[in-house]
């Protein structure tokens, strides 16, 4: 009887804890949620439960596209849109984009390795240097569409140079 009661109490305590974790993890910052989070953070991190559920929220937001320019030994420039080769039907559609976003967001960590990789990938061009660019999307409204404009028109992108580096010898 005592064992049953203790089991019941233990189960109750755990489900309360787990429910709190489910609710606190995505909660916005507040005095209460921050206090609870201080206690729960190790548990949330260990089990990968520290997740937000803000898909396309609060706004859809404009994305960015990675471009890179390979300069060959003759000085010619070749522009590549690497995400274009990816297919919806393969999960690398999102994996590779995750890497591209990391290159754009944290170039000090990821840019050099990416440049080295692109140099190797395009070895047939005899690359000398690679320039990484972030093409930041501008809003494309319904009015733009009805006016006959193309979403991929350069007018709807801001180009930002992420890094320019020589290819390794």
């Amino acid at each position: 009887m005592l064992r049953q009661r203790l089991t019941h109490i233990a189960m109750s305590l755990f489900v309360t804890w787990q429910t709190l974790a489910i609710v606190v993890a995505p909660a916005p910052g507040s005095y209460l949620s921050d206090a609870l989070r201080t206690v729960m953070q190790p548990y949330l991190t260990l089990l990968r439960l520290d997740s937000q559920w803000d898909f396309f929220a609060p706004n859809v937001g404009e994305g960015s596209r990675l471009r890179y320019i390979v300069e060959d030994k003759d000085g010619r420039q070749h522009t590549f849109n690497p995400a274009k080769q990816l297919s919806w039907f393969h999960p690398n559609y999102f994996w590779v984009r995750g890497w591209y976003y990391a290159i754009m967001d944290d170039p000090e960590i990821y840019a050099d390795a990416a440049i080295e990789r692109f140099c190797k990938e395009h070895a047939a061009l005899h690359p000398v240097a690679v320039t990484l660019l972030e093409m930041q999307e501008e809003r494309f409204t319904r009015e733009d569409f009805l006016a006959g404009k193309d979403r991929n028109d350069p007018h709807f992108f801001n180009a930002r140079t992420i890094k320019h580096a020589q290819c390794p010898e």
């Binding site: 937000q52 803000d54 396309f56 929220a57 609060p58 706004n59 859809v60």
Partner: peptide, 12 residues
């Protein structure tokens, strides 16, 4: 959370 976080934005 998915719903209420959307309501904070003009797009939604």
């Amino acid at each position: 959370y998915s719903a209420v976080s959307k309501l904070g934005g003009n797009d939604w």
